[in-house]
């Protein structure tokens, strides 16, 4: 599903963010990506969701070498990846419903399908009463749930979440993680970046630990499954 081989990332005139990162994620696996703030978790996820090109090394996604993917092929690959961004990245002038419906509409789904699935999912994440609300009128936790609903609405093959439980209480956090588990059981490969070690410890899923841009501990230069 995802293979990193000695991947490095250095922004122009900036520090090296990732260095020689290698790992392999099997299809259908569930992983936590942990590490302190600034360790490179978000950058690693960005490379995985094709938002950045690494400056060195090789990345394979869905059995394709990312470096050899033509620009015109990117949309189709990106539709297989659901992303929960750390800063949510909701579109402020769109309602909660329209934000969540975005991946479906972009993929050309019929409006009837949108009408069926989006309210159902919003009910599930506890936002059924806020479908017409604008993101700015919601709390941080509610916005985060909208972002999660948007990431999972199209049943992606790979789900990447950057601190998805950062703004919610423990009860909601657990509920969201159960949602991710549910998706994982249905075949979605999941990687969740978080520095909430307490939450991670409640689950028995493998962890990738990043520090200073390097992968440390379990999974380093080895297959993680």
């Amino acid at each position: 599903m995802v293979r990193f081989e000695k991947v490095g990332m250095k922004f122009r005139d900036g520090p090296t963010v990732l260095e020689e990162v290698s790992f392999f994620l099997q299809a259908g696996s569930f992983h936590f990506l942990t590490g302190p703030s600034g360790a490179g978790k978000s950058t690693l996820l960005k490379i995985m969701y094709l938002g950045l090109k690494p400056t060195s090394g090789r990345v394979r996604l869905f059995d394709r070498d990312v470096a050899g993917i033509a620009r015109a092929e990117l949309p189709a690959l990106r539709r297989k990846v659901g992303v929960v961004f750390q800063d949510f990245r909701l579109i402020n002038h769109l309602s909660v419903l329209d934000n969540v419906a975005l991946p479906l509409r972009i993929a050309g789904a019929k409006e009837a399908m949108v009408r069926r699935h989006v309210p159902e999912l919003l009910d599930w994440v506890g936002l059924g009463a806020h479908m017409d609300a604008l993101p700015a009128t919601l709390s941080g936790g509610q916005q985060q749930r909208v972002a999660i609903a948007r990431a999972v609405i199209s049943r992606p093959k790979l789900l990447l979440a950057d601190e998805p439980t950062g703004n919610v209480d423990d009860q909601i956090a657990m509920r969201l993680l159960y949602l991710f588990e549910e998706l994982n059981r249905m075949g979605t490969t999941v990687m969740i970046a978080t520095h909430n070690q307490g939450l991670v410890d409640r689950f028995s899923y493998p962890q990738l630990f990043l520090r200073g841009g390097r992968l440390i501990g379990p999974g380093e230069d080895s297959e993680v499954a």
């Binding site: 969701y49 094709l50 938002g51 015109a72 990117l74 949309p75 189709a76 990106r78 539709r79 992303v83 990245r89 579109i91 975005l102 991946p103 972009i106 993929a107 948007r150």
Partner: peptide, 16 residues
């Protein structure tokens, strides 16, 4: 630009 980047990341084609 930010919203356009987001749409791209969600899988929107340029034509969209």
């Amino acid at each position: 630009r930010e919203v356009i980047d987001l749409l791209h990341l969600i899988g929107a084609r340029d034509s969209y």
